[in-house]
Amino acid sequence: MSTRPTESEKPTRPVTGSVVAAQPTTAERLGALLGRQDVILLGVLIVMVAFFTVMNPKYFSSFAFANILQDFAPVMLLAIGQTYVILTGGIDLSVGSALGLSGVTCALAMRSLESNGTPVAATILVGLLVGLATGLAVGLVNGFLVTKAKLAPFIATLATLGAGAGLTLVATGGVQIAGGPTEVITLGNTTYLGVLTLPLIIVLLVLAFFWIMLEQARFGRWTYAIGSNSFAARGAGIPVNRHLVKVYALSGLLAGLAGVYVYMRLGSGSPTSGQGQELNAIAAAVIGGLALTGGSGKLSGTVLGALITTAVLSGLILIGVAPNWQQVVVGVLIAGAVALQQVKFSGLRKRRANG
């Protein structure tokens, strides 16, 4: 009979030459979670809501929440486009002017069609398409200035910012454009569940679509690749210039949609409705953690950044802060977010250099 030991009886031999990765402890997991950008932003949002509620209890009410969401929607639309642009390493300063111009052209088109006896449904549909087309046109101009004229994005979009604001004043004479179908106000302000309106629901669906596209689709991967290294992206076969035109066109289209949203909410096209909105959109993206150098950031951060920006402005109004100070606060938020980014990236570079 054989006395050879079975496999289970063989003595085990210590494994040499292999490294077993240490499992992170609970404290390390918790630290990593609390260090995430979106978790930090969520904490900041909660603290802000608590602060403004203490200062004015009306802030924590369904009515105030509904107003914050209504103000959040156009900022979010602009911030989505701004996110894509910044991820490519660019910037779009024209979105505020595009919003105002789109709202005005939408109002002018609806007023003209209604005065000519066009059916209400056709009037609203054509007016909406005119507003969207206006924003798209501004975005295409930006894209061609950046890719064909080889202008820096800052200069190109600064030029269209001024041109858009000027065209808005020329078209309106500096006054609001009213006189469209009353059904527009009904559609724009009928609430569901106390806080939602049809335009707001559409904005949330648009947000979900572009969130998925950025995270899952080739369009999003190409956007990140161009912002990380446009030379390498071109070498990998990505049509960089064509993609940049699409990105700026997307930003303009969403600005046009934001202009239509504001028109449907107010029932009139205002030449000043887009003033300063580009600052709010950039603030949402930067506060959300997007690197202005491109190639880094998440749309989830932009969403929280837009909520923070909108919540701050609404809170300042409720506690009686003068409107002139509101843009100062937004500017401080942008500066603080950029400073934190620089500290974060500096620490990351040091850790890489040390090993």
Rank of each mutant, 00 (worst) to 15 (best):
M264E: 08
M264N: 01
M264T: 08
R265L: 11
R265T: 08
R265A: 13
L266Q: 11
L266M: 14
G267R: 03
G267V: 13
G267H: 07
G267E: 03
S268E: 04
S268I: 07
G269M: 13
G269K: 09
P271D: 05
T272H: 06
S273T: 14
G274F: 09
G274H: 11
Q275M: 12
G276P: 00
G276I: 00
E278S: 04
E278Q: 06
E278Y: 00
E278H: 05
L279R: 03
L279I: 15
L279A: 07
N280Y: 13
N280V: 00
A281P: 13
A281Y: 09
I282N: 08
I282G: 06
I282C: 08
I282T: 12
A283F: 02
A283H: 01
A283E: 04
A283D: 05
A284M: 07
A284E: 07
A285Y: 11
A285H: 05
A285R: 06
A285E: 09
I287V: 15
G288Q: 05
G288W: 08
G288V: 12
G289W: 08
G289M: 12
G289K: 07
G289N: 12
L290W: 10
L290A: 09
L290V: 14
L290G: 12
L290K: 12
A291C: 05
A291L: 14
A291K: 12
L292Q: 11
T293S: 14
T293N: 03
T293M: 09
G294M: 11
G294V: 12
G294D: 10
G294A: 13
S296Q: 13
S296I: 15
S296C: 02
S296E: 14
S296T: 15
G297A: 09
G297V: 11
G297C: 14
G297L: 11
K298I: 02
K298T: 14
L299S: 01
L299W: 07
L299V: 14
S300H: 08
T302R: 08
T302I: 06
L304T: 03
L304G: 02
L304N: 03
A306Q: 09
A306Y: 10
L307H: 04
L307C: 10
I308Q: 07
I308S: 02
T309M: 13
T309P: 00
T309F: 00
T309G: 00
T309I: 15
T310D: 03
T310I: 06
A311S: 15
A311Y: 01
A311K: 00
V312H: 01
L313C: 00
L313Y: 00
L313S: 10
L313R: 10
S314A: 13
S314P: 00
G315M: 04
G315V: 08
L316K: 01
I317K: 11
I317F: 07
L318V: 08
I319K: 04
G320I: 08
G320H: 02
V321W: 02
A322H: 13
P323N: 10
Q326A: 06
Q327K: 14
Q327M: 15
V328S: 11
V329T: 12
V329A: 14
V329Y: 03
V330N: 04
V330I: 15
V330E: 06
V330S: 12
V332Q: 02
V332M: 13
L333C: 11
A335T: 15
G336E: 03
G336W: 04
G336N: 06
A337T: 14
A337M: 09
V338H: 08
A339N: 04
A339G: 11
L340F: 14
